[in-house]
Write a protein that binds this DNA or RNA. Structure first.
Lengths: 143, 143
DNA sequence: ACCGAAAACATAGCATACTATCTATAATTT
DNA sequence: AAATTATAGATAGTATGCTATGTTTTCGGT
C-alpha cells in the first residue's frame, strides 16, 4: 500500500494552510494582530457588538476556541466585552478604537498575502481554486 | 474596503484544512494515531531510521515541532530513538512493531478521508484541485 | 412558583504549530 | 591544540485549535 503526499488533498491543504498562516502572520504582526485573531476581527469590522455565540456560528470554530481568542484580544486591547442588558448569560464584543483602526491596513495585508500566494497561478486558475475550495468545504457540510 | 472570506484563498484553505484534520482525526484515533503524528509515520513507514534533521527536511515542519512530536510518539510506543554510532549529536528514529503494524489501516483511513472529502467533486475537479494546491505551495518556495 | 432542560460562556487539559534560545557534539580556523 | 563556528537536538514560552466539563442564567412545563 502506498501513499503520496503530493496527491493527498488533505496533506496538501494542511501544508498550504501553514504557508498561508506564516505569510499572513509576518504581515500583520507589526499591526499587533495574529492569525487566530484575524477572522474574529473581520467579523467585528463588519459588525460590532456580536455575542460569542454569533461569532461561533459565523466562524466555524469551536466555542471554547473563540472564548480563548476573545480573552487574548481583550488582554491585548483589541476589544472590550460587556454583558447584555436583556440576557444575563450573553456578553457582547465591541472593538476598541485601537482595534477599529487596524481594519484597512489589516485587510490590505491579507489581500497582499492572497495575491502573492497565488501569483504563480493564472487568473482562471485562481478562480478555479476558490471554486474548488468552496466546493470541498461544502461537501463536509453534507455528511 | 471589503473582504470576503469566501473569496480569500488563505481563509478557505485554513477552513478546509481544519475540516480535513477533524475528519482524519476521527478515523485514526481508534488506531492510537493523531493528525500531527501522521505525516511523521508516513515518512517512517516509507523508510525507518531517519534522523530528526532528515524528518524536518522531508516534512516542511519546524525542528522544534518535530522534536515535540517525536517525544509524544516515543511516549506512546510508536517509535524508539537511539543515538547514532558515528555522530554523537544524531538520534535516529525507529518504528516499534506496534507503529509498523498501523501502516495499512492508517493509510486506508487517510485514503477514505480524502475521497469522502472530495466526493462532491468530479474526477477532473479533484485532479485540478491537487494540481492547483501543488502549484500554490510551489509558489511559496519562490519568494 | 418551582424544577429540570437548555443556552451562553468559562475553564481544564491536551495536541500541534511557531519563534527563540540552550546544550552537546562536530568541524573548521588560527 | 585551542578557539571559533556550525550542526543536531532539546527546551521554554506562546498561539491556535480541539474535546470535555463546569457555571450561571434563562426558559418551558407542570
Amino acid at each position: 500500500m502506498t501513499f503520496s503526499m503530493r496527491s493527498s488533498a488533505g496533506y496538501l491543504t494542511n501544508h498550504l494552510a501553514r504557508l498561508f498562516a506564516s505569510g499572513l502572520q509576518a504581515r500583520i504582526r507589526p499591526l499587533g494582530l495574529s492569525t487566530g485573531v484575524f477572522p474574529v476581527m473581520l467579523q467585528l469590522w463588519d459588525r460590532d457588538g456580536l455575542t460569542q455565540k454569533e461569532l461561533v456560528d459565523r466562524l466555524g470554530i469551536e466555542q471554547a476556541t473563540v472564548a480563548n481568542t476573545l480573552a487574548r484580544m481583550e488582554r491585548d486591547g483589541l476589544i472590550e466585552r460587556r454583558g447584555d442588558a436583556e440576557d444575563g448569560r450573553v456578553k457582547r464584543t465591541w472593538l476598541t478604537d485601537q482595534g477599529r483602526a487596524l481594519r484597512d491596513p489589516a485587510i490590505a495585508a491579507a489581500d497582499a498575502e492572497n495575491s502573492d500566494a497565488l501569483s504563480g497561478l493564472t487568473e482562471a486558475e485562481r478562480a478555479q481554486l476558490l471554486t474548488l475550495l468552496n466546493k470541498a468545504i461544502a461537501t463536509f457540510g453534507t455528511r
